[in-house]
Amino acid sequence: MTEHTAEGLATRAAGCFRAYVDGDAAAMDRLVDLLTPILWHTARAQGAGEATAQDAVQTAWLRLVERAGTIREAQAVMGWLIVTVRRECWRLQRAQSRTDHELDETRPDPRPDPATVTVRHAEHILLWSHVEKLDARCQALLRVIAFADRPDYAAVSEALKMPLGSIGPTRGRCLAKLRASLTDDPAWGGAL
């Protein structure tokens, strides 16, 4: 939840995309600036190694431009990109597991890699220890949601195939689990 704008990331992305389709070529650069962080973390949350994650993000952008004419609903562009990155990671990871002797750097990380996440502050260490206790799918969801805005929560969950199953910006299962886990930890109260 990087910026708490009322309109959300998906809406700002839609604005850029509409401007691009209407002929403003620079609007695509703004869209790339806006969404590359959430797409990077989408790929990494799928357990993609660095090289794979970069490939998946780049491929998603190239596809978007190729298919810009077929995307009718600008509001759906962010979700479309997240879905495309997720599928591309899955495809690349499957291809790699078939040729497992390839370069180390193109191999996916063994798990969504909190191992490479350097946690410094005390509050961060505490929070991350609770995040790591969640199942892999919940961890993946929260790692992506964290880069969206509040109004985007449902769309991002949907794009990650973890729909919230209710209308409105409710917490959902994963954030609720994390919240319960934090609330049960006496150390957490002091960290807030």
Binding site: T2, L127, F147, T170, L175, A176
Partner: peptide, 23 residues
């Protein structure tokens, strides 16, 4: 289960912001 159906509050937003900072 009960928490899941409640609306997001400021603590959730703080938690998600912190996850983003960590990443």
């Amino acid at each position: 289960d009960h928490l899941a159906t409640q609306p997001l509050d400021d603590v959730d937003v703080h938690v998600l912001d912190t996850i983003a900072d960590i990443l």
